[in-house]
């Protein structure tokens, strides 16, 4: 307890105190709690109440934003899941298309038309190679 505060630990101690002692204690308490300045206290209370209301509004607003943020996070996770599935589906499709294209290529190389064409073009290929080598 500060020096300016009441020195009374137990109010029962004041039961037999003298008038002067009681007046002194009242003075100390009035000083400690500024009971004489009620108008100032009232203003403080109003200010605090306004602050509490603003804080409560802020808190409510934050709660709503938190709720929306959580939904956004869940939504993003869901969209990611969807994108992963789409990616996997498209990858499978692309893989299938590559395999089909390779098969088609092999079929062309194995065809009689391709082989005849290759034979027909053989002299020109040889000439081209010779020219390159020269």
């Amino acid at each position: 307890m500060s020096d300016s505060g009441s020195r009374v630990a137990d109010p029962a101690d004041l039961r037999d105190a003298s008038r002067e002692r009681l007046l002194a204690e009242i003075g100390l308490l009035q000083h400690q709690y500024s009971l004489t300045d009620s108008a100032r206290l009232q203003t403080q209370i109003v200010e605090l109440e306004t602050q509490i209301i603003q804080l409560e509004l802020g808190l409510a607003d934050s709660k709503m934003r938190l709720l929306q943020a959580r939904d956004y996070a869940r939504g993003c996770a869901a969209e990611l899941g969807e994108a992963q599935i789409n990616f996997a589906t498209h990858q499978q499709l692309a893989d299938r298309q590559v395999i089909q294209a390779r098969k088609k290529n092999q079929a062309i190389y194995a065809s009689r038309t391709w082989k005849i064409g290759r034979l027909v073009m053989l002299p020109s290929r040889i000439v081209r190679r010779l020219l390159k080598a020269g």
Binding site: L67, Q68, A69, R70, D71, A73, R74, G75, A78
Partner: peptide, 20 residues
Amino acid sequence: LGGFSIDYPACFNDVDFGNK
């Protein structure tokens, strides 16, 4: 779970929430 998604003002808010 973030409550109902405000991206669904009228329809499917419950379907979305169920999926969540």
